[in-house]
Amino acid sequence: MSIIVKKVAQLIAGLIFLYGIYIIVHGHLTPGGGFAGGALIAGAYILVILANGSDAIKLKKEEVGSSLSESVSILVVLMMAVAGFFIGAKVFFNNYLPTGKMGELISAGAIPLYNIFIGIEVAAALLTIFLALIIYKEEIEE
């Protein structure tokens, strides 16, 4: 890609990443949530990789980081659901944390935590699919 594309991607990607984090963290206050924010974060990574190529950010041939964080975050979501079973009422996804004052950033019990881990899971899953299609290309041609 030309120097203009590289520079613009460099300037924009950080803002997209921050906007994704904002959408995830404010998921229980404004429209959005884990799915939208996670897809935005994956989009920031994809923009950088498409502009600079996979050599520029030192991607290895067998990239384990994204698939590892995907598996760990969905495991954490399951653990939190099971923890709701043992604390308080005997149902999964029990909202056991105090709900707090409505409209503040730290409120709504466990919902922001679910949002954060679902966001990590979605971002890592989309990035894993993209990396698999881009990096493994050379192996198929042989």
Binding site: G27, H28, L29, T30, P31, G33, N95, T99, G100, K101, M102, G103, S107, A108, G109, I111, N115
Partner: peptide, 10 residues
């Protein structure tokens, strides 16, 4: 019940 201002996420 949930204290979430965004009903959809709640």
């Amino acid at each position: 019940k949930t204290g979430s201002a965004n009903l959809v996420t709640g």
